[in-house]
């Protein structure tokens, strides 16, 4: 294996983790959606690079699907939703961003610590990809947990899904059927969530999840 292919793969996977951090830090919705697009774009690059390294042409199709759907269509659609909801100027109130960022750093360290020994005997290319993919998944979860706005939770979920994609592409080359089905499931999830966002807004005049809590009587 060429050193350069290894380095590039590492760079792209690391870029994905960096993009996750950017998303966690970004409190303005439109900017965050831009970062989400960038996130998926880096993922598409990473998959394409895997296709090149593994000499697996079907991964190019995966990369293309990722580029079209996740990097272009989904953020754009979410942007339209945000604008139609009229919350594009809102600044989300996230408590103690610094602590969340520190926790994210801890999670990345943890996933490296867990994954590197487990995958010690596999291909180094796969190894670093899987470790960083786990970090992306954990960061996505962290973001879902810390955000209260429904749109940012959806974005966090999509970034989490990107992490899974990265791991799958790095491991063996993902079968196309799996990829297409995942793409469809994301699309369906997006549609359902989009509908729900409007329904929630209709009823509560906001997409802040705290309103739902209050409605259930959890918070007075």
């Amino acid at each position: 294996m060429h050193a350069i292919s290894f380095d590039v793969a590492k760079l792209l996977a690391g870029g994905l983790v960096l993009a996750s951090f950017l998303m966690i830090y970004q409190v303005r919705l439109l900017a965050m959606l831009n970062v989400l697009g960038g996130h998926a774009f880096i993922l598409a690059l990473a998959i394409a690079w895997q296709a090149h390294v593994q000499d697996a042409p079907e991964l190019y199709i995966t990369a293309a699907i990722t580029l079209i759907f996740k990097a272009a269509l989904l953020p754009e659609a979410l942007r339209r939703i945000v604008i139609r909801l009229g919350i594009h100027r809102e600044i989300e109130n996230v408590t103690s961003l610094g602590a969340v960022m520190l926790a994210g750093v801890g999670l990345v360290a943890l996933s490296l610590e867990v994954m590197l020994p487990v995958t010690a005997r596999t291909d180094p290319l796969t190894r670093i990809d899987i470790a960083l993919a786990l970090s992306v998944v954990l960061l996505g979860l962290l973001m879902m947990v810390t955000r209260r706005n429904a749109v940012s939770q959806v974005a966090a979920f999509l970034s989490l899904e990107n992490g899974i994609d990265l791991a799958a592409a790095g491991a063996e080359g993902m079968p196309l059927v799996v990829e297409i089905s995942i793409a469809f499931s994301v699309l369906v999830a997006f549609l359902v969530v989009g509908v729900f966002l409007f329904r929630i807004r209709e009823r509560f005049d906001t997409v802040d999840m705290r309103a739902l809590d209050a409605f259930r009587g959890d918070r007075k």
């Binding site: 999670l107 943890l110 867990v114 979860l141 879902m144 209260r148 809590d213 959890d218």
Partner: peptide
Amino acid sequence: TIRRYLVFVFLALVSLL
């Protein structure tokens, strides 16, 4: 709330890791 369930899932995952 959904978010708290997510927190549980997240914490369980992290503690297992």
